[in-house]
Simulated assay, not measured.
Amino acid sequence: MLMAHPAVLRDLIEQYEALAALHAADADSARVRQRMEDVAYTLCVSTGTHDVDAALIAARHHLPGARPEDDSLLNGD
């Protein structure tokens, strides 16, 4: 399977996290929710996963400096 470039993955993670914060602040924003779903879909396709949580973990593991034993990747810290 092809994996997206780490810079692309980092950008997608940052976009998703920013959108998630916006969505938490304004849950009624349809535009934010749609963009968040679009980024989640792109993350899933880019990492070969089927849900955004798995996609975020997979993307973080492909970033420079990631270590398999680094559990901070699993909880988003």
Rank of each mutant, 00 (worst) to 15 (best):
M1Q: 06
M1C: 07
M1I: 09
L2P: 00
L2V: 11
L2W: 03
M3D: 08
M3C: 06
M3S: 09
A4V: 02
A4G: 03
A4F: 03
A4I: 01
H5I: 06
H5L: 07
P6Y: 11
A7D: 13
V8C: 04
L9V: 02
L9Q: 04
R10L: 09
R10I: 05
D11M: 08
D11P: 00
L12W: 00
I13S: 01
E14Y: 06
E14H: 09
E14P: 01
Q15H: 08
Q15C: 02
Q15K: 06
Y16P: 08
E17R: 11
E17Y: 00
A21H: 11
A21L: 11
A21V: 14
L22P: 00
L22V: 09
H23V: 09
A24I: 10
A25R: 14
D26M: 12
D26S: 10
D26V: 12
D26L: 08
A27V: 14
D28N: 13
S29N: 14
S29H: 10
R31M: 10
R31F: 13
V32T: 11
V32C: 02
V32Y: 07
V32L: 04
V32S: 03
R33V: 01
R33C: 04
R33L: 08
Q34K: 09
Q34W: 07
Q34S: 08
R35Y: 06
R35T: 05
R35D: 07
M36V: 00
E37I: 03
E37G: 06
D38P: 06
V39H: 00
A40T: 01
Y41I: 07
Y41L: 15
Y41A: 13
T42V: 10
T42R: 06
L43G: 03
L43K: 02
C44R: 09
C44A: 08
V45I: 12
S46E: 07
S46G: 04
T47V: 02
T47L: 04
T47E: 05
G48K: 01
G48S: 01
T49D: 00
T49G: 03
T49Q: 04
T49N: 03
H50G: 06
H50M: 04
H50Q: 04
V52L: 02
V52C: 05
V52S: 04
D53P: 00
D53S: 11
I57T: 10
I57R: 09
A58I: 00
A58Y: 01
R60T: 10
R60Q: 13
H61L: 15
H62M: 13
L63H: 10
L63E: 07
L63R: 12
P64Y: 04
P64H: 05
G65F: 07
G65K: 10
A66S: 15
A66Q: 11
R67W: 11
P68K: 15
E69D: 15
E69T: 15
E69V: 15
D70L: 15
D70A: 15
D70E: 13
D71N: 12
D71W: 14
S72M: 12
S72P: 15
S72D: 14
L74W: 09
N75Y: 13
G76L: 03
G76C: 01
G76E: 03
G76P: 00
D77C: 08
